[in-house]
């Protein structure tokens, strides 16, 4: 398990959490509520009171029996300290919202060759769904795919001596029930932004519309055409951009450092066989800066008119 230290910490955290199989997850659902009303909660109250007593300088407060922390019991006192709620929640199963209607709106499939990475990230996705107030079902253990290859050990003849290799792909599914399309999109974007190494994701999203969906789509297309104007014919192919940068890109593609950078010389380098390998996705900036830039442009346009 070689990875960056932050990743290792995350994995060891799950070890402590002891993420269990989905069958036991279902039984553990009400656990957080139990602990909230448990001893830890009381411990927290007492510490708060203690702190206020120490600060309180009135004579009545001084008479109250002070809880003394001696070097002998300091370890125990520390052990009894309640963790902050958010930290404590990471030790427990992810919380879930109950579905209202039970209509499936999204399905996220996570795949990996490493079960630990997968479990960590599935847990993360479920927590993200909870904090976005999405009702999530999962993790659903999907069938493990085993691919096997048998190759001769030698580079030439000697067919009798062979070796077996295999690749196991483990996958988990998360179902989102009754999610608003925008919230689901936000969740997917968030999950994608924080995607974990070695874990692939695939999402199916369902949207429910009225019977006049065709009309809505026409209206939407017109709205988009109005907003984009001349830029619309650049959508998709982006021909103008491609022609403009074709020379530089060609030069870059040929240069050795560039090829080395994207791993052309690595074992599975230059994976042109992957359907989307050659596709470059235009990055869209989101945030205050981009919004300000956009607003500035609109103002300029208004002035020009």
């Amino acid at each position: 398990m070689s990875g960056p230290s932050c990743a290792r910490a995350l994995i060891s955290a799950t070890k402590r959490v002891k993420i269990s199989s989905p069958t036991t997850n279902g039984q553990c659902l009400p656990l957080p509520r139990c602990t909230i009303s448990g001893t830890n909660q009381r411990r927290h109250d007492s510490t708060v009171v203690e702190a206020s007593r120490h600060l309180d300088l009135t004579p009545g407060a001084a008479e109250a029996p002070p809880t003394s922390i001696t070097p002998a019991n300091i370890d125990q006192e520390l052990a009894n300290l309640r963790l902050p709620r958010a930290v404590q929640a990471t030790y427990l199963d992810p919380l879930r919202h109950p579905p209202t209607l039970g209509i499936k709106t999204a399905e996220l499939q996570l795949r990996s060759y490493s079960i630990r990475n997968l479990e960590v990230f599935t847990d993360f996705c479920l927590r993200a769904a909870y904090y976005l107030k999405l009702a999530a079902k999962g993790p659903i253990a999907l069938p493990r795919q085993v691919e096997r290859w048998t190759v001769p050990r030698s580079n030439f003849v000697h067919k009798k001596s062979q070796e077996n290799f295999e690749r196991r792909t483990v996958s988990r599914g998360i179902k989102i029930l009754d999610g608003h399309p925008e919230v689901v999109a936000t969740w997917l974007a968030f999950v994608k932004k924080h995607q974990y190494y070695g874990v692939g994701m695939k999402a199916n999203v369902w949207e429910y519309g009225s019977l006049e969906t065709g009309k809505d789509m026409d209206a939407e297309a017109e709205r988009i055409a109005g907003r984009l104007g001349e830029q619309l014919d650049l959508v998709g192919g982006k021909e103008g951009l491609m022609v403009k940068h074709a020379q530089t890109v060609e030069g870059m593609l040929g240069s050795e450092p560039f090829k080395a950078r994207w791993g052309a010389y690595a074992a599975m380098g230059g994976a042109g066989g992957v359907p989307s390998a050659g596709r470059r996705v235009e990055s869209v900036r989101v945030g205050k800066k981009a919004a300000r830039a956009r607003a500035g442009k609109e103002v300029d346009a208004a002035k020009a008119e």
């Binding site: 060759y113 490493s114 096997r148 290859w149 190759v151 001769p152 050990r153 030698s154 580079n155 070796e163 077996n164 290799f165 295999e166 690749r167 196991r168 792909t169 070695g198 690595a266 074992a267 599975m268």
Partner: peptide
């Protein structure tokens, strides 16, 4: 096949391990 074996044994192919079942 031989390049595959070499790379798999070197751990350069993600997820590929020696199989035994």
């Amino acid at each position: 096949r031989f390049q595959f074996r070499m790379n798999a044994l070197a751990g350069k192919l993600p997820g590929v391990q020696k199989a035994s079942w």
